[in-house]
Amino acid sequence: MSTPEVLRYAAFTSRPDGGNPAGIVLDAAGLDAATMQRIAAEVDEAETAFLTGTTADGAHTVRYFSPIAEVPFCGHATVATAVALAERGRVADDGAVRFDTPVGVVAIAVTRDDDGIRASFTSIEPSVRELDDADLDAIFDLLGLTRDDLDPELPPRLANTGNTHPVIVLRDHETFDGFTFDPDAVRALLDDRGWPATITVAHRAASDRFHARNLFPVGRITEDPATGSAAASFGAYLRALGAVAVPSTVVIEQGGHVGRPGELTVEIPESGGITVSGYAVRMP
């Protein structure tokens, strides 16, 4: 079987050199899991999305693979794939499209403006729970941080909108900017705890604006440039803590530490799924 066309799009940016690159295979109906894993490893972006068919009610079935494993959900690849479909006239006139993912059906809205094509996905129902002290200490040991570095108003939690993300918010921007880590040690911790995605480390820049670094060592990647699933989980985290008035919209800046700045808009309703939106653009 010949290898299908693999597209590359950058999500949460309107520039090909910004945001988070994703691989996309729009015709993956004939591919088995081993072949999808091989292609994702060859693409070597954080995730590659594979459209494997459609359901009886018209949703696209989607699977996501990092270079090393299948993951339950990927926000930036979802945004990128929706934009790629829209560019090819494969989204309804009202901009609505649905992806049937391993974590459930995700609704997406596609819009156009002078800056390009923008996609918004609404997560599944979130869950937020305490982060065990042992897990928090393990993360701090890897980052060279202590509990004194935490923002006292935003305590650590585990948040999930399809993937489980430990969330840690630091008090000082200098500490947020300056921490370093051993990627192999972070990967070992993620694997040991069964966390399939990123560790979110954030800093509150203003009441409605946050900076984020998402640690995700896979292949040549150490930090994810823009993480849609983590942004949704972060919105759920803020709501669970009562840290923002709901409904509310916050902006997350991410990717500057790895030279690919991006921006994610997070809409936090009073209940239900969290909506994350951003542009996506094809990469050369």
Rank of each mutant, 00 (worst) to 15 (best):
G255T: 15
V276H: 00
P261L: 08
G228C: 12
G262Y: 02
G259K: 15
V201P: 05
V201G: 08
N214G: 03
R260V: 01
L238E: 04
H257V: 04
G219M: 06
G255D: 11
A236C: 05
I199Y: 07
L238N: 10
A226W: 08
A205R: 14
V266P: 07
L241Q: 08
A197W: 02
F210L: 15
G262M: 07
A226I: 01
T198H: 03
R239F: 05
L238W: 07
P269F: 14
R260C: 09
V201I: 15
T249K: 13
S207V: 10
D224Q: 09
T200P: 00
A206N: 07
D208N: 13
R220D: 05
S229L: 06
G273E: 01
G242A: 03
G219D: 10
A205Y: 09
A232V: 10
Y237W: 01
F216V: 04
L238F: 07
I252G: 12
V276E: 05
A205N: 01
V244W: 04
V250H: 13
A240M: 02
V276T: 03
A212E: 11
E267T: 06
V246Y: 00
G228I: 13
A212L: 15
P217R: 08
G242I: 04
F210G: 09
R260L: 05
A232E: 09
P247K: 11
S229C: 06
I268V: 06
Q254D: 06
F216P: 00
R209S: 11
